[in-house]
Design a protein around this nucleic acid. Sequence first.
DNA 1: CTGAAAGCGCTTACAG
DNA 2: CTGAAAGCGCTTACAG
Lengths: 340, 340
Amino acid sequence: MAVTIKDVAKVARVSPSTVSRVIADNPRISEETKKRVREAMIELGYHPNFQARSLAVKSTQSIGIIMPNSATKVLENPFFPEVLRGISQVAREDRYGIYLSTGATQEEIFEEVVQMVQGRRVDGIILLYSKTNDTVMNYLLEEDFPFTVIGRPYNNAERITHVDNDNIYATKQVTKYLIDKGHKRITFIGLNPEVVFTIDRMEGYKQALKEAGIPFNEQLVVQESSLKEGGVEVAKEFLLANEPSTALVVTDDFVAIELMSYAESLNIRVPEDISIISFNNIMLTNHMRPPLTSVDIDIFQLGLEAASCLIEKIKNPTILPKRLTIPATMIERKSCASLK
Amino acid sequence: MAVTIKDVAKVARVSPSTVSRVIADNPRISEETKKRVREAMIELGYHPNFQARSLAVKSTQSIGIIMPNSATKVLENPFFPEVLRGISQVAREDRYGIYLSTGATQEEIFEEVVQMVQGRRVDGIILLYSKTNDTVMNYLLEEDFPFTVIGRPYNNAERITHVDNDNIYATKQVTKYLIDKGHKRITFIGLNPEVVFTIDRMEGYKQALKEAGIPFNEQLVVQESSLKEGGVEVAKEFLLANEPSTALVVTDDFVAIELMSYAESLNIRVPEDISIISFNNIMLTNHMRPPLTSVDIDIFQLGLEAASCLIEKIKNPTILPKRLTIPATMIERKSCASLK
DNA sequence: CTGAAAGCGCTTACAG
DNA sequence: CTGAAAGCGCTTACAG
């Protein structure tokens, strides 16, 4: 079997306690015996058993990443690999392991979180999404377990450390950009209204309209899901509607790209017939014809900050909750036309 | 503190052993006491401590994923999220957790693997890459630790369960496709020659040339790294060379896409002036102008099979090693022209 | 400076 | 059908 602390102790002719102290580099151990113990460790090829250590010290040196759906589904959207990149950078620096959720349904995900928390599988958790009435978030809050979230918590935001863009402001700017180009009939396409950033972005959209004196029109708000579930037909119908909008604000590049290809097949020209602006600035946007104007929300930084806030919190649980706002900047390309 | 098996035992008026048996749903426990214990568990909100269980039974129900470089770098290439998607699908079904490597250097990665193995942090490992003389692979083999690899192990392939495409064959077909279109001066662009799939693909490329009676020309093999390190300048120089090739076989879509945009800036037309064919068939390829002909290597399936082979092996360590070959198919688009 | 002992929270032969 | 005991491999007060 694997070599344990006892084997090392025997060879080094000390007690297991001493070996343990050498591992921790305890200053009270003489250099002499340290040397002896270390030699024994090398000689035997000793490596500490991680499980045993975790059990004894109640810490695992790893963080759990919770995604809004199964990794299988979620990783299709480049947002998630990108946010993982940011997280893994600080995990690596601080020598934390990364533990990924795989659950698909609300219940599976909740079960996974409970297992991570109660089973002491991780020291802290990063929630990669925020939605209204999230049982996971409530649970974590109740348990007082270290966690941070990417996005704005719908409730208790002041008690939860989170990192987010200023989605209201960013969307307001973007909508204003379209209005300044002479657009009046602007459609907003968001995810379902449980997703907090959809709520915030819609708010920004509304504010821009209001400031410009354009009445808000319920008809011009559409849910991505209605487009998707309806399939290509509904999406095309939408593009062909009697009184089509002249511009689209879309909360996700992927949806915008899909729409662009439908438009192309219907001979609706972007941007001449319809202007499009969306969010995330994934690499693809730059390669579309025309290149897609998109808001760079700095996903990498979102992940990086969420991870470093979490580790900070793990190391010092009494630290105050905070909100970090990552700047978002519109990358202007060729998908928006002026009506003037 | 967290509620333990002892607390449950007390409330249910049984011994901790019995509680443990109820958790395992041991048939020797009467239904009556099972009920009583379960009620106590619910009443107290009991959840088993995962670390303790792992320590006792020497199994962690999680698998480690080893990437060829830091996640921060690696996840830029869509190959990796895609392979993770496949892995996570079977992990979810079989209720395994996923543990991600974050190391960047050869040494860091090796250290992580040793920790996973010796520290009993995971039950098995998937190597997401294969290169010649890989210390990690040798170590895993020596330790007789359950692992599978995506790609062909350069040594000991018959002793290691792995899943791969038939890279030789696929590249031979693709090169032949170009030859059939009248190309004779075809450049092969691969990763560095430590990467086994580069070796295999180059072999396929050579075989196709040989069959067509085209002499192999050392000059027409270039390493991606030389292009990248040299920067834009070298890449452009390459495209402008005196006697440029008329076609490129590129082992990675990303490199091909980069090259395409350089070509565009140099007014070299694809496919009129130069034909390009590459590997992975990432989503971007379909959106390029022109759309890029690419080999679909079914990354998702690669991940899925690697994971299910691994779990099979974990459950039954004496199972024989095997090789799975995932079909690769060329997706013909518009990036190759006929010279005839 | 070092050791013996108790404990982290489980599991599992052994005994009855 | 159930319990007492030993053990998984560490850590850490306590004592000297």
